[in-house]
Design a protein around this nucleic acid. Structure first.
Lengths: 182, 182
DNA sequence: AACCTATTTAAATACCCATTTAAATACCGT
DNA sequence: ACGGTATTTAAATGGGTATTTAAATAGGTT
């Protein structure tokens, strides 16, 4: 079984009401808010190490967490700090994981050129002079894998950890079946 | 009967004599006059919300009004302000509506691809990757309709409100006859 | 050599800008 | 004589702006 490491969890939720980002920018130390550059306010926490984006609509996006637990902790902390500044918000609703980025290792070097040819041009994109990784799209679970010559890989687009597991199992089986791994 | 909303009326007239745009630019607060960029002086009114263009020849173009009434009000206001600055002009002659832009809604989603095929290539232009709307030209009244998948539409080129009404009735009848609406 | 930067992928969020159409006006450049 | 330049306005769509993260390359900078 391949060891999978979750590298980044992106999740969204809502604070339930419109936010005065200008006021929040002043209340949260270190907050970055440059509306003409980007409409969201960016606020980073050192623990869990995350970057939370707050929007005028009250919608929130949390990035950088390593688990759903960290996402919850981060959003709670941010909400608490906003409330501490006297800004009213509603107890946040459900948190939805929008994307999970994970890494793994197939355990052996692989020949990307050979894989690009046998795995079919429809789901494979490989332009080494543009990017060293081979892009492989899987329909179920709907994720994208970036395969590298070292055997290491990146999985993105997953909604839950099991999707990553399924994807890695799938590519492993396919490569072995084609004699391109081990 | 489809609800039609007039979004913009463009009209022209003349103040009767040559104008010293440089002097008017100084007299009208907020006026924009950059002759090397555009020969006309641009002057905006907040009420009615319009943009009036004044030319050296004394010709005037008013844009942004929602009705002929607003056009008249806007031009009168501008003329008054110019006279108040001690600049002599003649009581403005007839105002001619040059273009009316209006929007409406067919009430149901429509299939632009199907419409592009059945309505004939001669009067239809549809390049979704360039612009999401389908361009449909009508000869009488001579207007152009922009049809969108949502069923909403834009009519431009009309000279009077009745032209818009006639155009919407026409496209509605044609689409229904072809079984492309409702 | 040790750093940065960029490259690619996904996702939510939400702003701006361009796209297209018509019309009058007028001035410059090809 | 056209084709920009500028003004207004709706419709809906795409792209760029910013955030995070791993992988492995190239290129540039101290």
């Amino acid at each position: 079984m391949a060891v999978i490491r979750i590298e980044n969890v992106v999740a969204s939720t809502s604070l339930g009401r419109e936010l005065d980002l200008q006021a929040i920018a002043l209340a949260l130390d270190g907050a970055e808010y440059e509306p003409k550059q980007f409409p969201g306010l960016i606020y980073r926490l050192k623990e869990p190490k995350t970057a939370t984006l707050l929007f005028r609509s009250g919608k929130v996006v949390c990035t950088g967490a390593k688990s759903l637990e960290q996402v919850k902790t981060a959003i709670s902390k941010v909400a608490k700090q906003i409330e501490a500044a006297g800004i009213v918000i509603k107890g946040e609703p459900k948190i939805e994981v929008q994307n999970i980025v994970a890494s793994s290792d197939l355990g052996a070097k692989i020949n990307l050129n050979a894989i690009a040819i046998s795995l079919g041009l429809e789901k494979v994109e490989y332009e080494p002079e543009q990017f060293p990784g081979l892009v492989y799209r899987i329909d179920v679970p709907k994720v994208v894998l970036l395969l590298f010559g070292s055997g290491k890989l990146v999985c993105t687009g997953a909604r839950k950890p099991e999707d990553v597991e399924a994807a890695v199992d799938k590519i492993t089986a396919e490569l072995k079946a084609a004699g391109l791994l081990k």
